[in-house]
Amino acid sequence: MAHRWKNTLTRADATPLAAYMNRRQIMAGAMGLGLIGAAGMARSQEAELEPNSWEDITQYNNFYEFGTGKSDPARNAHTLTTEPWTVAIDGLVDNPGDYSMGQIMEAMTIEERIYRFRCVEAWSMVIPWNGFELADLLNLAGVQEGAKYVAFETALRPDEMPGVRFPVLDWPYVEGLRLDEAMHPLTMMATGIYGKPIPNQNGAPIRLVVPWKYGFKSIKSIVRITVTEDEPPTSWNKANGREYGFYSNVNPEVDHPRWSQASERMVGGGLFAKRQPTLMFNGYEEDVASLYDGMDLRANF
């Protein structure tokens, strides 16, 4: 069901593509005229959040299938064929099968969600996604009794993906969520950014977005969704289990063994960008903390 979750970042924060360059000036002007009232100031911290530019979002990516450099995906991902595209949905579902992108888009209501995006490498962005809740897709497939987890798999196409020639990770890229995480209204499948079809380097034609977890959980270019009873393997956990756990919730108090997670740097701030404190569950604590009641977040990192 669309529009179940209301964004604290509003439409006003997602500036039309053509106007985002002018946004600061408009905002400054509005402030000066006193147009922003008390209601606006109440969520002033949120109001300060501004979606990153199209360039930031589409030219600074981790998508190791297209190379490990941050600009490699933007340079190399054009080779990915995204039409036709089908997503196999299988496992503990009533209606298993290959779902074409056309079928999926027809069944889903696309909405916009402006989410913070926090990479495990301690950089972050604010991204205006277009997509639908994963729960809607899972309900379409019909989740069966006994299901506890959802596994995801990225396309593996050596002919189209220069990065998979070297075993940086055990390809294909796989990820997973607990069923309640997957069904959470914040969890979405993105098919667009800034109202445009999602670029290949950002995970075209369809990707997961779980805003309270480190970015690598939000698996790109998904070809398979499997509903399972057991916790599925996840790529970074397989590569280095000491550093990357299954949950990988954004948590400023639990450091990565090789770097601190207490602060982050917003991409696009240039050479003198200031670090900002990282928020618990990436700022979505109110929405998702209850999923982990009684759980030791240090042990289940």
């Binding site: 360039e55 930031d56 030219q59 600074y60 941050k70 600009s71 950089w123 740097r265 991409v267 696009g268 240039g270 050479l271 960008a273």
Partner: peptide, 15 residues
């Protein structure tokens, strides 16, 4: 390059 975008969208790590 870091000042003019030649090192990408996040120049600190790149530099």
């Amino acid at each position: 390059m870091a000042q003019t975008g030649g090192l990408g969208r996040e120049p600190i790590n790149a530099l």
